[in-house]
């Protein structure tokens, strides 16, 4: 007996689809980790101390970067677990897949355009396509796995930056390990530290996190467009992705001074962040003014809601018994406003 399925229903429920996304993300991260382990495991065996130094040097970068990037979101930081998931995606799934993808495409450039051309240009012509798309997939996966977490371009920018941070940390480690070979393994620890000094001391401010932040803002524009927000736009999403790719191309291109590359990328992401933050705050203030006019939010609450410091001050003013209730009310009101204006 075949039972007819009502029109408009899916074979899979919303919860099941979210579970499927999460399982796929975990598998992708496991695959990326396996690729990286297969590629670099022998370094850990032959050069255990330098390999551990290469990894340990990245810990402060990740911890500080994680804290600073999450702090960039106005009003309150993004969800901790999903922020960590974004970093993990960048460090494993994106970095592992990029290793294979880049090797394939760089090989094609060398075969098609010659080894001399490939030596100069293959990285700048391969990485923007492969790495930006693979990192961007991480932001899209967060949207799919946790629908409420990325609501607009500013959220997308921050999650893109977090994915890029994870990717950057893994790439720094792999570059450090490869530098052991390029320097003939004569002083592995020094090779690792020198590589770290260049990649963190010189180029870190304009590296992967800036590019994927811009591309991630594009995903945010797409999400905003889909939920009908006025500032959502497919065109802006495409423009962000293309800008991120162009930033990456310039960053890897030969014959441009490092300081210019770093300043350019940092300038672009800083400009985009300031523009998005200003627009976000303006929409949030308008939304709060409307609530004050409607009498659903008091003027003092509206004045304090967008500021971490003022919210804390409001909680401090409350009695111990009320404090939990005030915090809960702030969270709920803020979530409501964020949904509207993100």
């Amino acid at each position: 007996m075949i039972s007819a399925r009502p029109r408009g229903t899916s074979r899979i429920s919303s919860d099941e689809s979210i579970l499927l996304v999460r399982v796929t993300a975990i598998l992708a991260c496991a695959f990326g980790t396996a690729v990286l382990s297969w590629q670099f495991f022998r370094f850990l065996v032959v050069f255990p101390s330098p390999a551990l130094v290469a990894a340990a040097l990245e810990i402060p970068l990740v911890v500080i970067g994680f804290a600073v990037l999450r702090r960039l979101r106005p009003a309150r930081p993004p969800a901790l677990a999903w922020s960590a998931a974004a970093v993990v995606w960048g460090a494993t799934a994106a970095a592992g897949c990029a290793l294979l993808a880049n090797r394939g495409l760089i090989g094609l450039w060398a075969k098609g355009a010659g080894t001399r051309f490939a030596a100069d240009w293959s990285a700048s012509l391969s990485a923007p396509l492969n790495e930006e798309l693979l990192k961007l997939c991480g932001v899209v996966m967060v949207v799919l796995a946790a629908p409420a977490v990325i609501q607009g371009p500013l959220d997308g920018l921050i999650f893109g930056a977090l994915v890029g941070l994870g990717f950057q940390a893994t790439e720094n480690v792999t570059y450090g390990l490869n530098s052991i070979v390029f320097s003939g393994a004569t002083d592995p620890a020094r090779a690792v530290v020198n590589s770290f000094a260049v990649r963190v001391g010189v180029t870190a401010l304009g590296s992967h996190w800036t590019m994927s932040a811009v591309a991630g803002a594009g995903v945010g524009y797409l999400v905003a467009h889909r939920r009908g927000a006025e500032h959502g736009s497919v065109l802006a999403a495409v423009a962000c992705l293309l800008t991120a790719m162009a930033m990456h191309l310039a960053f890897d291109a030969p014959q441009i001074a490092e300081v210019i590359k770093v300043a350019l990328n940092f300038g672009i992401v800083a400009g985009l962040y300031l523009t998005l933050t200003r627009a976000y705050r303006s929409r949030a203030r308008a939304a709060l003014d409307a609530r004050v006019a409607a009498g659903t939010v008091s003027p003092s609450e509206a004045a304090s809601l967008l500021s971490r410091r003022r919210r804390r001050h409001e909680r401090d003013l409350a009695t111990a018994a009320e404090r939990h209730m005030v915090a809960e009310q702030q969270r709920s009101r803020l979530a409501e406003v964020e949904r509207e204006v993100a």
């Binding site: 408009g8 899916s10 899979i12 429920s13 919303s14 099941e16 689809s17 979210i18 996304v21 799919l144």
Partner: peptide, 11 residues
């Protein structure tokens, strides 16, 4: 149901 379908398409 539509949201699930869109999610699967993007996945």
């Amino acid at each position: 149901a539509g949201a699930a379908k869109v999610r699967l398409r993007w996945l």
